[in-house]
Amino acid sequence: MWRRPFLWFIVAAALVYALYPYFTDDVGMRESLLLAAVYIILASNLNLMIGYAGYVNFGNIVFFGLGGYICLYLVTALHWHVIPAALTGGAAVSALALLFGLGILRLRGAFFALATIGVNQAIQQLVVNFEPWGGATGIYLSLDAYGPLGGPMQALWTTYLMIVAVTTASLLASYAIRHSKFGLGLLAIGQNEDAASVLGVPTPRYKAMVYSASAFLPAVAGGLYFFKSGIIEPSSAFNLQTSIEAIVMVMLGGSGTILGPALGAFLYEELRGFLLTAQSFSQFQLVIAGALLLLIVQFVPGGLLGWVHQRWPRTRRWLE
């Protein structure tokens, strides 16, 4: 698999992404890139559901938020190091998703999409009422928590690199799944679930597996991100809006492709950064995102990459 130039391209791009702000020592750039990286993780993993299996998960942010909570809880209450804490968060959320997936994935299409909204909101409300996690006020980190990473300043750089690593892992996972039997089964489900089942694709198991797989890296990223922020609260951890924006990103770049969602996330984040700084637009961020989604869905449902593929079919082979 390492003979494929596409993989080297991903790794090279990730290295540039990781090292550019480091060598220029540009903290502002790092923060903007970090946010984009988090969005790439969310979009890329959401794409496993939307683009591959054809299931819209409106509540995808619940993985990110729960991962963040578990990680911060382990760091503050049990004094774990952030890396095992984030990984544990990822594993726990992934296992939870597997259990949950077996239930709600019995629902098809729109019913599933509705249920995911319900799941996100229910978990947010549960956390609001859950005192060990600080209820509505959430969990705060004290500065001591950054000690193991060499102090707060150094910790910011370290978490940045770790998040870029998770981003790279997300893209590689997207690639690996796309080129596996598992991925082929998912694509079949996405095209026509009944036909896939008659062809022998074990649909319930595959759906639960991809739901669980799409939970792992976002949950790890949630741990790292909220560790870096030093605070997590229910409203920011389970923000339905972010969930929806992740869908916009996937659609913008091209659902079902490997690079598309990452491209969409990056572009969307840059666009938003621009709109936020431009005075007259800052109020209309939501309107613009909505209008963008509307235009994509109606006129270019394949997104940027889908459009390129349609315009120049040969690009399908190397631009995945």
Partner: peptide
Amino acid sequence: QPLGGLSVLDNCTVGACFG
């Protein structure tokens, strides 16, 4: 019931993989 978005070959590959 073709898997419309997949190629002819991929359709058959699904059959072979999961048959």
